[in-house]
């Protein structure tokens, strides 16, 4: 897969979809292409995050540790991004990503990503917009969940 295909791929991810192609290309260029075989961890829950991964091909499970063992909470595949929260704020990884097939990903390092944001504020605004969208969505879901809970209590 070439740089220009990666750019295509990045554009399909909501977080990056609003960015100008030239910036996406730079982002792709400064990122590493990495390969995993089935059953490998991209990262581990609790680790400090240093990169986000855009999955170019293949599939992986999102696993969360529970007292009874690891619980699969979701599955990710081509065109999705994982680990992006950890590169925006210094929180430990909230889940483990384990590949189920062989997988190819673009590894976006935290430093490079933040540097890009600092250099191109329009990019930061775009990211902020996406995050705000997500927040409002989460908030409305929370409100709904709360009201449901209240109804149950009542």
């Amino acid at each position: 897969m070439l740089l220009k295909d990666e750019v295509e791929m990045l554009r399909r991810i909501t977080l990056f979809s609003g960015l100008p192609p030239a910036k996406l290309k730079l982002l792709a260029f400064t990122s590493d292409r990495v390969m995993y075989s089935a059953g490998e961890d991209l990262f581990h829950q609790g680790d400090i995050g240093d990169a986000a991964y855009v999955i170019l091909s293949g599939k992986a499970d999102v696993l969360v540790s529970t007292p009874t063992g690891q619980l699969k909470v979701a599955e990710v595949e081509q065109n999705s991004i994982v680990g992006e929260i950890a590169i925006l704020c210094n929180t430990p990884r909230t889940a483990t990503i384990k590949t189920t097939t062989s997988l190819e990903a673009l590894r976006i390092r935290k430093d490079d990503f933040l540097k890009l944001l600092a250099d191109f504020p329009e990019m930061a605004v775009e990211i902020m917009r996406v995050l705000a969208d997500r927040l409002s969505q989460t908030t409305s879901e929370l409100t709904e969940a709360r009201s449901r809970a209240q109804r149950v209590e009542a």
Binding site: A22, K25, L26, F29, T30, D111, D112, K115, D119
Partner: peptide
């Protein structure tokens, strides 16, 4: 040239 044209000369990306 396309990738790096806009970057300031001391930008860390130039290491790559």
């Amino acid at each position: 040239v396309e990738l790096f044209r806009d970057l300031p000369p001391d930008h860390p990306f130039f290491q790559q």
